[in-house]
Design a protein around this nucleic acid. Structure first.
Lengths: 351, 351
DNA sequence: CGGCAAACTGTAAACGTTTACAGAGTGATC
DNA sequence: GATCACTCTGTAAACGTTTACAGTTTGCCG
């Protein structure tokens, strides 16, 4: 029996309205009750400012209406886009979002999947930095539904939605070649990841299909960041002054490369064309604005959220794997046209 | 009695270990137990992969170890900085973070404070867009501790941490005047907010203390955004070609102003100096890099998190209100010096 | 060996809500 | 008036964990 010291409970309301706790629950949840019972319960609840205890509801109902989004670093604009879209999908359905930064630590990714067993979250959307055997094992035994944003082996019985970095990179490098570029360098991010490898595949494929032989000296690998991109570009331009374009693994690196070009009095794109990836706000920040590959971060977030909600709604459908097609958003860093609508860009996609 | 269909419970472990459910709880929570009891319980728990139900723990223990962070828009880099710092403080203490975007809707802000009454969150950090009487009323009756990031009236019995937009704006405008600028325009963001008003106060104060009379025509108000900043700058420069500097309410607006200057073949900073606010990554994205006021977003997030945790640890101390001092990070958009470390900047603060 | 204190253990209740099920009430039909 | 079907209501139990309290066990000391 509750004491009078804490917030009102169904028992407090029942006593005040002169009905049972079951009637209180029925009235407040819209089940059958006589008009007189409804009136008395609603009046008592309003007078006492009764708010049902959500934890107790979760325990009895077997779900919390909370979803977890686990990603490497919320500071990365791609994940911010996903957060926004996940909330756009799930908030109207009454879900709350728990945010979990794994700090790109694989063990933390495993731990968050395992923590589903404590029942405080109804489901999980996970962006792993890479997928190991350990990932596949904990995912197979996850206590609640999981959707992975990223590539999974075909045998993995987990819903997933992924980007297509290969095609995105192909779009970018082809675009550069259509514009006459022949000495195209590549500044890759961390490459011991699926996207890192796919970018390299796309880069080399685009060169090969144009009859060019990829020169390993024109590829450098670095951590993400504006300064890191500038350093990498300086290194490339020091060693290979003839480079006429550079494709970068994200917009931060591309901005850094653009800064390096400016420092060397190279005009963009006349002397050096620059392409980024992710089409974040950073792509529109510089001058000229960056041509950038939009990998559909927000779209992936939205699809993942809808997949997860479908699973939670009792869906027992086949394992789903969707790929979001990339788009090349063309701006002045490759076209050179200067106008008042500098940041808008023209999108080129695969359809 | 639990059925055998769901995950193992304390009762399942107790039956397997041949002890009571109380002994299971005691062993797994490190309370007194005989070695033999410990061994049998731990073995049974390990064999069955037992994970305690977090929701049941929360109900019995009266707390969830979840904190809510409510802010207008996670897409704003200032709030991303806060999220990261809040997690840095709270995650090692075992707290999970619920993220709530209010979409700058005041009624949603009120609703999230009220939702504390459902007990699913132990506390709240709230970034209101403005503080109305309704805010003060729901905050006064909040069912769990709240810390506000923003300015509150002195009479509000709520912990808070705020920026000092007045001083930050003073720093920026003084810096421009120290560099000989006399026609300083001001592109403000939404001004029906406390920060919006404080920026205007700081701008006008700085001009007055230099013996200048603020010209209302040199101040425009706009929504945030790169494109919005460019439009505002074009309007200002069309009407007042003699402007030699522009101070902007955030880095997006400042980038837009810089684009407008480039479009008009105005050199930065020779013809037009530009200063932004927030010192986000955007400030380092353009060329030249922006001088920007760092209002200490991350620091405010960290302080708010520590205030909230102190309250949750039973603290009954006086209401706290802290102000984070701003710093001016000086870069090439006002100094003009071009170098290889283009994005680093030099910080000027109040100490 | 007996007494005492400390440690351990199991039973019952609590946390707050929802709902199955049995019983009571009501209205319609024969 | 009796019967049947439907609606409403209250009691008890469930959800899974923690812990107060009474009883039992163990070890030490005289």
């Amino acid at each position: 029996m509750t004491t009078s010291g804490g917030p009102p409970t169904v028992e407090t309301i029942a006593a005040r309205a002169g009905v049972s706790i079951a009637s209180v629950s029925r009235v407040l949840n819209g089940h059958g009750a006589r008009p007189n019972t409804v009136r008395r319960v609603e009046q008592a609840a309003a007078e006492l400012g009764y708010v049902p205890n959500g934890v107790a509801r979760s325990l009895k109902g077997g779900r919390t209406r909370q979803l977890t989004f686990a990603m490497p670093d919320v500071g990365n604009p791609a994940y911010v886009s996903m957060v926004r879209q996940i909330q756009t999908v799930t908030k109207p359905l009454g879900y709350r979002l728990l945010l979990h930064s794994t700090d790109a630590v694989a063990e933390d990714e495993l731990a968050v999947v395992r923590s589903l067993a404590d029942r405080t979250s109804d489901g999980l959307i996970l962006c792993p930095i890479r997928v190991t055997d350990a990932h596949l094992e904990v995912l197979a035994r996850a206590a609640r539904p999981v959707v992975v944003i990223g590539s999974l082996p075909d045998a993995a019985a987990v819903d997933s939605v992924r980007a297509d970095s290969v095609t995105g990179t192909l779009l970018a490098v082809r675009h550069l070649m259509e514009r006459g570029r022949r000495r195209i360098a590549f500044i890759n991010g961390p490459s011991d990841t699926v996207p890192g490898r796919n970018r390299r595949i796309g880069y080399e494929t685009a060169l090969c299909e144009a009859g060019l032989v990829p020169d390993p000296a024109l590829t450098v690998t670095t951590d993400f960041g504006i300064e890191a991109g500038a350093l990498a570009a300086h290194r490339l331009l020091d060693a290979h002054p003839g480079i006429d374009a550079v494709f970068c693994a994200n917009d931060q690196l591309a901005l850094g490369a653009a800064h390096a070009a400016h420092d060397r009095d190279l005009r963009i794109p006349d002397d050096l064309a620059v392409v980024g990836m992710d089409d974040s706000e950073l792509a529109r920040a510089g001058h000229p604005a960056l041509t950038s590959v939009d990998l559909g971060s927000a779209e992936r977030g939205g699809i993942a959220a809808r997949m997860l909600v479908a699973r939670l709604d009792g869906g027992r459908h086949e394992v789903r794997c969707e790929t979001v097609a990339p788009r090349l958003v063309v701006r002045e860093s490759t076209t050179g046209a200067r106008s008042r609508s500098a940041g808008a860009g023209v999108a080129v996609g695969v359809s």
